[in-house]
Nucleic acid binder design. Structure first.
Lengths: 198, 198
DNA sequence: GTCTATACCCCGATAGAC
DNA sequence: GTCTATCGGGGTATAGAC
């Protein structure tokens, strides 16, 4: 046995290997269906090591979500900074998702949407990170929409968020080939309409 | 003990009580986090009865999803028939969701999206019902879009599906108050734009 | 910090009387 | 069909040596 299921898993610290394994398996197979044993095996780590670094499965999940949100925050901001026009800065949301999925494990969709589905209890510790992601999306989209139009930017931000959520759900469902591209195209049209009619 | 957690649960057959309990608990707390014991207790039914009617927890889930899809199919079609214009028939999708949520247990969002998240394995028996829901949405939306515009109706149908998925994900996340109303409004604008520019 | 071994619990499913 | 009692298995978490 002892076959390497993940080649990169052995090159970093046990803590990082645990986060990598958790991130990938939770996203791919679901949280409840992924046992701690599977995570340990994939990370090449012993049980005690997990409980030395995290409070348990929940603690590992929260840490993985937090890392995911940090990475996403930075990557999205970089995409915004690289965009030239206000419209492109708003559309950078969709490009950033593509970049994220290319750089890290694509998974099956949005980990925050998936976690809020699997653990609907607002009292669960993961809920804090889920809420933080919502706050980040809402505040940043509102800022960016304000640079595109002065006529009810909150409404534009809400529309873009709705389309974004649709793309995330579309990735999860997998019934259409490219929900991200479709969402970007629709958002682009929405923005253009706003600019024209103001 | 022996307290009634659900008043209506005792008035129908054991099979229906099981379906009601499963539908509500799976949707509210998640499938994995809902134990068979909880379903049995809520349905006031003994273990053997469940396994006399269904193959097990999975079988119960599939049957509950199937009933959900049947109800949704009928209810949506009724809303379409009641609508006057082609545009309203396309928008009936969002009204039908509101009606469904009012008539049956609202739950936290879309059971098919939630199930595809919790059980991503395409080999799982629930996958057949999930696919059937996708097919129903796609085919019916394409038909309805064809009555609205002759210029690339598939694209309009795809946009409406994206907005619908966004509303479903929005219900799940619960970060904005009324994703369904917002989705209906956005879809209405998309349809109007198509009619004007053709 | 990391390993092997294991405790302890809950879950899904079944057995057998009625 | 419905009840009570229970079996077997896999789950999370911990203990104790190194």
């Amino acid at each position: 046995m002892e076959q390497d299921t993940d080649a990169a898993a052995v090159s970093t610290s046990p803590r990082n290997r645990l986060l990598d394994a958790a991130d990938e398996l939770f996203s791919r197979d679901g949280i409840a269906r992924t046992s701690v044993d599977q995570v340990l095996h994939r990370a090449h780590v012993a049980p005690g090591t997990l409980y030395a670094h995290f409070s348990g499965k929940d603690g590992l999940l929260v840490a993985a979500l937090r890392r995911r949100l940090d990475r996403w925050d930075r990557l999205w901001q970089d995409a915004i900074d690289a965009a030239a026009s206000p419209a492109d800065k708003l559309l950078a949301l969709f490009d950033a998702v593509s970049t994220y999925r290319g750089r890290y494990t694509p998974g099956r969709g949005c980990a925050f949407l998936a976690t809020s589905t699997e653990l609907p209890d607002p009292g669960h510790p993961a809920h804090a990170v889920i809420t933080a992601e919502s706050t980040l999306l809402l505040t940043r989209l509102n800022q960016l929409a304000g640079a595109v139009t002065t006529d009810d930017p909150a409404s534009l931000a809400g529309d873009v968020l709705l389309v974004y959520d649709g793309a995330m759900a579309g990735l999860q469902r997998g019934r259409t080939p490219d929900p991200l591209g479709q969402g970007r195209a629709l958002a682009s049209r929405l923005i253009r309409t706003r600019i024209e009619t103001q």
